[in-house]
């Protein structure tokens, strides 16, 4: 079933996009509903995943247009408050690659996730982000460059 196949991927994408599991859950549900209602508009010439992610992205944008995103206490912050040793682990986790990538501009982070997290091609990312391939290449290039820069200090220290 399509829901089983894509729900985790869509939820993950939206979680990274929204930074909030409640919003991600709501938008995931809404995404599948919209996809079901507009199934007749799906063009089989394109990958289904791309179409679904495009819907997810647009749904998320319209969701936040009507509602301010709610802040969620991150797992790291919770750990800081509860247990010092857990806080140390959380700090280590915080410097992990994708957490570092979160500090990039949102469109750069989104491009990175779609490329390396979801394995989409440049053309597919352009479709999801409703932009052209050149812009995607630029975003990807900048994201990698910024990420490499931010990774450099610990690499040099070791």
């Amino acid at each position: 079933m399509l829901v089983e196949q894509f729900e985790k991927r869509i939820f993950n994408f939206l979680y990274h996009f929204t930074g909030n599991s409640h919003d991600a859950e709501d938008i995931t549900q809404e995404t599948f509903l919209k996809a079901y209602q507009n199934m007749h508009r799906y063009d089989s010439a394109y990958a289904f995943a791309t179409w679904l992610f495009t819907i997810a992205k647009r749904t998320a944008i319209s969701h936040f247009r009507s509602k301010k995103p709610s802040e969620e206490l991150s797992a790291d912050t919770e750990a800081d408050l509860a247990d010092p040793s857990a806080a140390l682990e959380a700090k280590e986790e915080r410097v992990s690659l994708w957490n570092l990538a979160k500090t990039l501009k949102s469109n750069q982070y989104e491009t990175l996730w779609l490329r390396y997290g979801e394995g989409f091609s440049i053309a597919e990312i352009a479709q999801v982000m409703n932009t052209n391939q050149i812009h995607v290449k630029v975003l990807l290039h900048r994201a990698r460059r910024h990420l490499a820069k931010r990774l450099r200090p610990p690499t040099n220290a070791s």
Binding site: E4, K8, F11, N12, A24, E25, F32, W98, Y116
Partner: peptide, 24 residues
């Protein structure tokens, strides 16, 4: 980036699947 992406993935809430199917 590719290797860490899997670890960075969030697990959806347990009732999400049921909620989606019920809504559909």
């Amino acid at each position: 980036l590719i290797g860490h992406a899997a670890r960075h993935s969030e697990t959806p809430p347990p009732f999400l699947h049921g909620k989606i199917v019920a809504a559909l």
